[in-house]
Computed example of a mutant assay.
Amino acid sequence: MTDSADVSRFLPDEEATLAAGARWAASLAAPLVVYLQGDLGAGKTTFVRGLLRAAGYGGAVKSPTYALVESYPLAGFTLHHFDLYRFASPEEWEDAGLDDLFGAGSICLIEWPQQGGGFTPPADVTVALAHEAGGRRLSVTAHTETGRKSLEAW
């Protein structure tokens, strides 16, 4: 997308949100931890759907709100999409055994990461979506060298 480790773009509609996710798909490499931030309905799952479609996944892509995690085996890595919204306490992370899904062959996208407290692994990248002027504002920030490289490739 840019030389910077921070990116901000206005996305006027759902198609633009899907396209933003799709553009990132080609440059993703495991391992990577991504926090997805935004209010309910801000477009987090739409962004993930665009990413997965561009990465070659043809099945249904749904919010993991009730399942807690949806996993998608792709060429070169497995993408795990987490939603911690329903956590009543951070200890639920450990109870669910979620650490087992993180590793060299995984890209982990985590909605509502703050609900996991200190159990949630630190982010390489944060993707934030916010309602703005009838569309969405996409803001992306790299927190690690791995995250910076991913954004530079985007």
Results as ranks from 00 to 15, higher is better:
residue 38 G to T: 04
residue 38 G to A: 06
residue 39 D to T: 09
residue 40 L to D: 11
residue 41 G to I: 04
residue 42 A to M: 06
residue 42 A to Q: 02
residue 43 G to C: 11
residue 44 K to P: 01
residue 44 K to G: 01
residue 47 F to A: 02
residue 48 V to A: 03
residue 48 V to F: 04
residue 48 V to G: 00
residue 49 R to F: 13
residue 50 G to D: 05
residue 50 G to C: 08
residue 50 G to S: 12
residue 50 G to Y: 04
residue 51 L to H: 09
residue 51 L to W: 08
residue 51 L to E: 05
residue 52 L to I: 07
residue 55 A to Q: 00
residue 55 A to G: 00
residue 55 A to D: 00
residue 56 G to F: 08
residue 56 G to R: 01
residue 57 Y to F: 15
residue 58 G to M: 08
residue 60 A to K: 13
residue 60 A to T: 13
residue 61 V to T: 07
residue 62 K to C: 09
residue 62 K to W: 07
residue 62 K to V: 09
residue 64 P to M: 15
residue 64 P to S: 12
residue 64 P to W: 09
residue 65 T to W: 07
residue 65 T to C: 08
residue 66 Y to F: 15
residue 67 A to R: 10
residue 72 Y to Q: 06
residue 72 Y to L: 09
residue 74 L to F: 05
residue 75 A to K: 11
residue 75 A to N: 12
residue 79 L to T: 00
residue 79 L to C: 03
residue 80 H to M: 03
residue 81 H to R: 06
residue 81 H to T: 10
residue 81 H to Y: 10
residue 81 H to G: 07
residue 82 F to I: 04
residue 82 F to L: 06
residue 82 F to G: 01
residue 82 F to C: 02
residue 83 D to Q: 04
residue 84 L to Q: 02
residue 84 L to V: 06
residue 85 Y to P: 02
residue 85 Y to L: 05
residue 88 A to I: 05
residue 90 P to A: 15
residue 90 P to D: 12
residue 90 P to H: 14
residue 91 E to W: 13
residue 91 E to A: 15
residue 92 E to F: 09
residue 95 D to T: 10
residue 96 A to H: 13
residue 97 G to C: 08
residue 99 D to I: 07
residue 100 D to I: 09
residue 101 L to E: 08
residue 102 F to V: 12
residue 103 G to P: 01
residue 104 A to M: 07
residue 104 A to V: 11
residue 106 S to N: 12
residue 106 S to G: 10
residue 107 I to P: 00
residue 108 C to W: 06
residue 108 C to F: 10
residue 110 I to P: 00
residue 111 E to N: 10
residue 112 W to P: 00
residue 114 Q to D: 15
residue 114 Q to K: 14
residue 115 Q to M: 14
residue 115 Q to P: 04
residue 117 G to F: 05
residue 117 G to V: 02
residue 118 G to Q: 14
residue 119 F to W: 15
residue 119 F to K: 11
residue 119 F to I: 05
residue 121 P to K: 04
residue 121 P to N: 06
residue 122 P to F: 10
residue 122 P to N: 08
residue 122 P to H: 08
residue 123 A to V: 03
residue 125 V to M: 07
residue 125 V to K: 01
residue 125 V to I: 15
residue 126 T to C: 09
residue 128 A to W: 12
residue 129 L to A: 08
residue 129 L to G: 04
residue 132 E to L: 13
residue 132 E to W: 11
residue 133 A to H: 12
residue 133 A to C: 07
residue 133 A to N: 11
residue 134 G to L: 06
residue 135 G to A: 10
residue 137 R to M: 13
residue 138 L to G: 04
residue 138 L to D: 04
residue 139 S to M: 10
residue 139 S to C: 11
residue 140 V to M: 14
residue 142 A to W: 00
residue 143 H to D: 07
residue 144 T to P: 00
residue 144 T to S: 14
residue 144 T to R: 03
residue 145 E to H: 07
residue 145 E to T: 12
residue 146 T to S: 13
residue 147 G to A: 11
residue 147 G to Y: 04
residue 149 K to W: 12
residue 150 S to M: 14
residue 150 S to W: 14
residue 150 S to A: 15
residue 153 A to I: 04
residue 153 A to W: 10
